[in-house]
Structures are given as structure tokens and as C-alpha cells.
């Protein structure tokens, strides 16, 4: 077997091993390669900073544990940002498995803020600063229903409190009082938000999606149907970088430390693709 034939028939286990090492080594000893922030992430950050003043922000936790490594760090970073800006945050889920994700994110980030809070005003308090509405079946009906009345769809929050009695919901009736909705998703939920809440009620929508879905959402960015988008672990790392740039301290970054591994893994993949193609074209020419 010639060397070129060998190049096209590398045992897949060798590829897995090399790729595994390329991911493991930077995780054990990070190099700190800088994260380049792309426009789509910066747009989302800027929109939250500039265009949601005095209005509530909705976060729809539409993902499940299978995509946690990619989407959960985005949720941490976004909630961190919103709490730092003192925006009212309304959490909900269109995916039933998102409830556990949302509870974890809110509890963790609120606890982080409250650890360093000096007074009650300085703290992040459930019911005053944020609320979690939970999950309701029939996501299209949920989105359309909230366009008329949020209370009509969610008379009580996830913990059974009537939402009328929560300070955070004062003055919030429907999407008119919501500055932005961010759909964090491992499936096609951002489309649904754009189609039903964006087109019909004029709600501005942002998205945090898995990298697999990233390419299919670019048309929505071009038409400004999405104000911005975080795609995959890279998107989350970009948002953490933006928080850093704006002096919003994040206690434990969950995405950025994985970027060295991601970069090296991509390099290894490119090398294997080139090697495979060299072998393929040589054999074809012969």
C-alpha cells in the first residue's frame, strides 16, 4: 500500500485519539488564545445595553441537557449581564426540559450577586428583580397568548406564586413592555419566536443556538429579524469576553476556557481533511 493510499485509509481510532489529545491537553493547561468577538454577538450585547433600558427582558430557556455544554454558558453570561444592568428578567421555557436549566442558571447567578451584595437594594431578589414562569404545553399557543396577556398564559409562576403579586411583573401586561426576548435553544424555537412574536407583535428577538443551527439563522440576522445571535460555545465565549471588556466581572467563566481546545481541535480536523484530500486527488490522478 503506497503512502497516499494509507493517507486515505487512516484508522478512525487514530483520528479519535489525536483529536481527543488535541482537546484534552489545552483543557489541562490552557494557553489563553484571545477570543475574537464577531458582530452578531456584539450586536446582541449592544442591543441589551442600549435598547432595553427601562424595559423587561425575556429569556426563553428552550434547550435541554443534551446541548448544555454549548447553550448553558450563554445563559450564564446573558443572565449575568442582565442582572448587572438591573434589567427586569422574565424566564420561561418552551421546552419542558428547560425548566431545570433555567432554575440552575437563575439560582447560581443570583447567589453569585448576593454573595458580594452589601444591602438589600444591591441584591438580586426573586420576585423583585426576576421571575421564572416555568413551562406550558403548546408552545405556539403560549407565544401567541403572551402577546395578548402574559398573565392569561401564566397566572402563576413556576413556584406557584400568583404573578400579579410579584413586584417584577408590575406594569408588564404583554410584549409591549418587553424590550427583547432571547431564545436559547437546541431546536428550531427561535424561528417560532420570530414568526409568531416578532412578525405579529413586533417583539425584538435575539437567539442563542447550538453551532449546528448557527448557519441556518444568518438570513434572520441579515433582515434584522434577529437583533443578534450567539452560536455555539464560541458565541458564549464571545459574550464572556464582551462582559470582560465592559468591566462586568464574571466569577467563573464556563465557555472561554474551552476555546483553546476548540481551536486546536479545528486545526487537527483541517490537517486531517487536507491529508485525506491529498491522498484522494493523488489516487484519482493515477
Amino acid at each position: 500500500m503506497s503512502i497516499f493510499e494509507r493517507l486515505t485509509k487512516i484508522d478512525r481510532r487514530i483520528i479519535y485519539f489525536v483529536l481527543g489529545l488535541a482537546i484534552l491537553l489545552p483543557l489541562l493547561k490552557p494557553w489563553g488564545i484571545p477570543v475574537n468577538v464577531m458582530d452578531r454577538s456584539r450586536d446582541l450585547f449592544t442591543f441589551i445595553e442600549d435598547s432595553t433600558r427601562g424595559r423587561a427582558v425575556m429569556i426563553s430557556f428552550d434547550y435541554d441537557p443534551q446541548v448544555m455544554p454549548e447553550v448553558h454558558p450563554m445563559a450564564y453570561a446573558l443572565v449575568h449581564h442582565l442582572f448587572a444592568l438591573r434589567r427586569k428578567v422574565i424566564g420561561l421555557c418552551l421546552n419542558v426540559q428547560g425548566t431545570g436549566m433555567a432554575v440552575d442558571v437563575f439560582n447560581r447567578i443570583a447567589a453569585e450577586y448576593n454573595e458580594r451584595a452589601r444591602s438589600r437594594e444591591d441584591s438580586i431578589i426573586y420576585g423583585r428583580d426576576y421571575v421564572f414562569l416555568g413551562w406550558k404545553s403548546g408552545y405556539v399557543a403560549v407565544i401567541l397568548g403572551m402577546g395578548e396577556s402574559i398573565k392569561g398564559v401564566y397566572p402563576k409562576d413556576y413556584y406557584g406564586n400568583p404573578i400579579d403579586e410579584l413586584e417584577v411583573m408590575e406594569g408588564i401586561k404583554n410584549y409591549r413592555q418587553i424590550g427583547l426576548c432571547i431564545s436559547l435553544s437546541g431546536a428550531a424555537f427561535p424561528d417560532t419566536w420570530v414568526a409568531y412574536a416578532g412578525s405579529r407583535y413586533g417583539l425584538r428577538v435575539g437567539a442563542g443556538v447550538t453551532a449546528v443551527m448557527g448557519a441556518s439563522y444568518y438570513p434572520y440576522l441579515q433582515t434584522r429579524q434577529l437583533v443578534g445571535m450567539l452560536a455555539g460555545l464560541k458565541g458564549a465565549a464571545e459574550y464572556e469576553t464582551l462582559l470582560d471588556e465592559h468591566n462586568i466581572p464574571i466569577k467563573k467563566k464556563t465557555a472561554a476556557p474551552g476555546m483553546d481546545a476548540q481551536n486546536l481541535a479545528h486545526l487537527v480536523m483541517i490537517v486531517f481533511i487536507v491529508i485525506g484530500n491529498i491522498g484522494y486527488f493523488y489516487l484519482r490522478r493515477r
Partner: peptide, 26 residues
């Protein structure tokens, strides 16, 4: 070019999931 972009993103996604599991194991 569209397929290439989708494939690139797919590789990125799978690597990210693997990173998540390796971080947990570490």
C-alpha cells in the same frame, strides 16, 4: 459554500459537546 459552513458549524458543535464532557471528567 452553504454546505461547507454548515459542516464547519457541525464540527464545532460536536467538539463543544466533547469539551463539555471532558471538562466534567477532568
Amino acid at each position: 459554500i452553504g454546505f461547507g459552513a454548515s459542516f464547519g458549524y457541525t464540527v464545532m458543535a460536536r467538539v463543544s459537546l466533547f469539551i463539555g464532557r471532558l471538562k466534567f471528567l477532568i
